[in-house]
Amino acid sequence: MSQVIIAIILLGLLALAFGALLGYAAEKFKVEGDPIIDQAEALLPQTQCGQCGYPGCRPYAEAIANGEKINKCPPGGTATMEKLAELMGVDPEPLTASAETQVKKVAFIREDECIGCTKCIQACPVDAILGTGKQMHTVITDYCTGCDLCVEPCPVDCIDMIPVGETLHNWSWQLNAIPVVNISEESKC
């Protein structure tokens, strides 16, 4: 009988000890908030374009954390989708958008057609359009995320989405991928 009691006491002590240990660990390594949302948001391109069907990148990140599909972010492209897949531990899926929409673009306002209606200014999620009522508007290219949201509201259709061109700064050393054009024939000197 005493053996049984000893066993029970021992087990009880053990349980107490481990319980305390677990409790301590839970307290010590406690994670603030839901890091998955933050991580997912960090992966998203922050264009705030709403093409995913959510009103911004943060809401979409929250939705992803709650099991939304990861392939709804055209601006992020396949790379973002793959990173999200890795983060969420799901299989990569083809993007919902076509490849054409994945080219980075910026908005451009044809300024002589702009009537200064400020609609695009209100539509821009990142305040990248400069202008005021009745005055010509223009896009601050550096701030433009290419979200497309300003195109629809424009009453005179004067906003174009222009693909970002290759410059010396963003050239990526794809040596033999350059379409080599013999400019010397075209130039005049």
């Binding site: 998203l44 391109p45 922050q46 264009t47 705030q48 911004g56 990148c57 999620p125 990142v126 305040d127 990248a128 701030y143 995320t145 963003n170 050239w171 990526s172 050393w173 794809q174």
Partner: peptide
């Protein structure tokens, strides 16, 4: 390496852009 470096640079650039966009948003 050059390709990798420019890809990294671009990635960093995009990250910066995203950060900026988020701030502005």
């Amino acid at each position: 390496y050059r390709v990798a470096k420019s890809a990294l640079r671009q990635e960093a650039e995009e990250k910066k852009q995203a950060e900026l966009a988020k701030q502005r948003f």
